[in-house]
């Protein structure tokens, strides 16, 4: 399974991680993930070997 994640720090300092599954994500989910300003980490490699940050 190919998974991407982004971790941010909320205003109060707490960590929050978004998990994104490009193979099944809707446009709304994909847009929301893209709008998060953080580096993409690839959790598993599947069809895609790398991802531009």
């Amino acid at each position: 399974m190919y998974i991407e994640k982004k971790q941010i720090q909320k205003e109060d300092g707490r960590k929050l991680t978004y998990y994104h599954f490009p193979e099944t994500a809707t446009d709304s989910e994909t847009d929301a993930f893209k709008s998060v300003e953080a580096e993409v980490q690839i959790l598993k490699s599947g069809e895609k070997e790398s991802k531009d940050v």
């Binding site: 707490r14 994500a25 989910e29 847009d31 993930f33």
Partner: peptide, 16 residues
């Protein structure tokens, strides 16, 4: 809300 995005798939965050 706790999730500052317009949509999400799975999100994990530190408990408030």
């Amino acid at each position: 809300t706790e999730i500052p995005a317009a949509d999400y798939e799975i999100v994990v965050f530190d408990n408030k």
